[in-house]
Design a protein around this nucleic acid. Structure first.
Lengths: 225, 225
DNA sequence: GCGAATCTTGACGCGCTCTTAACGGCACCG
DNA sequence: CGGTGCCGTTAAGAGCGCGTCAAGATTCGC
């Protein structure tokens, strides 16, 4: 779940924002001055920081600069000042977006979503699957068996990828054939038999007695970690 | 160098922006309607797209959606409409920022820098790569092999850069072609073969039997340190 | 405007992958 | 006990993808 750090010296605004954001399903952490904001950001992983520039203890751009020393968390700046020099200063200090008060809540939320979206698709989630006989890194498209890299052909990988991303779930033959070869091949169950045998030969310790790439007779296949 | 794609139906604005941006050292490409904007974006790699919502041929959000089908390039929206629903719509369609006209040029440039900064530092972590046969400094764009500097052409470097920044990760042919030549060249696998051979000749100790620039048949290439 | 470096494009041979067919084993059922 | 699907296995031909080379086109620096 995404955690939003809200920093504003006005407790009313903080509370109002917190309620709204929680209503959107975000986890919310708050701070009312620069020092505690930096401290909070260091305490736990934060997805986005919403920062008011008018803080009592330190200048807003100073907070941004300090945070940027060690963190790349997206910063959305709120400010009452409309002057463009303020905006330029904040943005060049390392902020990612800037809204002037008064602002529309829906606009704030939309900009928040934009920041979160970009953050999420740049931070690649590491998808690793390990079993007793092989290890697969779905991100790198790499499979190793007892320390050795296992070469996969495109078709082999396509099938394996689908199965590994759905552990314990039954994948019907039609699903596999449609995903890999296209809808026109939905009845060519032969292909699957050939390639499942190939995959087992490469990945199972005992290909004739598979433990992870399981056949469900009459239905399809299932990957069991 | 960063390439900015400017899209606006008013030629005056396009020219004014182009001059300003070129003055900042950016490479500028322009378009005056949605279709040609999408086409331009597909022709070459673009760092940021500046998009006016009031285009003659298609709705602004439609342009965003169409672009997001295959590209993650940051989009900065310009619009004359102040309504918050317009902003929400554009941002949720996939835009990254939204400025209403009239806007301050310095603010636009600052927001542009913010977008470029995030795009560039999202992948800048490892700058030195060493293998048994060559050493590369990704910051300085310098490669040495057994003490000797190796000259790289721009295209060669672009390819190498992507591979080196993703060690052990399989990069598909489409990814490479899209990043280096632009999405329009996604099927010109010939180019890759020529340039991979070139890179191997320059970097591998045994070009015919590569140890670091590995081909994954039917899929793409992989850099193995 | 000229020369050199770089990029684009086409052709060719080889190896690997995909496709396809045939056969045997197994379980279920009449 | 014989029949019928369904699955696993194997093998072989076809076709495609890759590496390689070379020549023409284009860009870039001087």
């Amino acid at each position: 779940m995404n955690t939003i750090l809200v920093v504003d010296d006005d407790p009313h605004i903080v509370r109002a924002l917190a309620i709204t954001l929680k209503g959107q399903g975000y986890t919310v952490v708050t701070a009312t001055d620069g020092q505690s904001a930096l401290h909070s950001a260091a305490q736990r992983p934060v997805s986005v920081m919403i920062l008011d520039l008018g803080l009592p203890d330190m200048d807003g751009t100073a907070v941004i600069s300090a945070l940027r020393e060690w963190s790349t968390v997206p910063i959305l700046v709120l400010s009452a000042r409309h002057g463009s020099s303020d905006k330029v200063e904040a943005l060049d200090a390392g902020a990612d977006d800037y809204i002037t008060k008064p602002f529309g809540l829906d606009e704030l939320l939309a900009r928040l979503r934009a920041l979160l979206r970009r953050r999420n698709d740049s931070s690649e989630e590491v998808t690793m699957v390990t079993t007793s006989s092989f290890t697969a890194n779905l991100d790198k498209r790499q499979v190793t068996k007892s320390g050795q890299d296992v070469r996969m052909t495109p078709t082999e990988w396509n099938i394996l990828d689908i199965l590994l991303r759905n552990p314990d779930k039954l994948i019907t033959q039609q699903q596999l054939l449609t995903e890999v070869w296209g809808p026109a091949y939905a009845k060519e169950a032969n292909y699957l038999r050939v390639y499942m045998a190939q995959l087992r030969r490469k990945l199972e310790t005992e290909p004739g007695n598979p433990r992870h790439l399981i056949t469900e007779p009459g239905m399809g296949y299932r990957f069991v970690p």
